[in-house]
Amino acid sequence: MDNKLDSVIKELQEKFSEIKVSEQQVVTVPVEQLTSFMQMLKDEYYMDFLTNVTAVDYPSDKNQNGEEDDEEDKGTMEVIYNVNSITEGYTLMVKTSVARQNPKLPSMFSVWGGAHFQEREVFDLLGIIFTDHPDLKRILLDDSFKGYPLRKDFQWVGGRK
């Protein structure tokens, strides 16, 4: 199974020159090539099962002087996709980064229908907008909730007295 995945990753690196592969076989793809990359995974490499869509918030780090960067929020948010192949048996983790100020990336609903609810959840809790999603609105929180809870700068008061 590892050999199959290795050869798949090698072929993908040849076709898409800008992707990076880490030691644990995690592929990072720039946002512009995301849709064509995912479509190729589904059509040519039998990856037909999208297991997991999630995102992590990495706010900007302090710069070298120890002061915070207050001109521009250089932080990023990473969106992670886990794709399985039922027939071939391997699984691949694909990551992509968007800017934290105005996070937008294309929706994967056109490739796999399983992205429907999971992308709505990522939008609800982190505020990342998926363009071309058929019905992007809040799913877990109520419609009048202000803010995005899973961001690192979300302030709230718990009920503990």
Partner: peptide, 14 residues
């Protein structure tokens, strides 16, 4: 009283 989830942003404490 909210139980183990009392610190959450969305739970009514009791």
């Amino acid at each position: 009283s909210g139980g183990p989830f009392v610190d959450s942003y969305y739970v009514v404490p009791g």
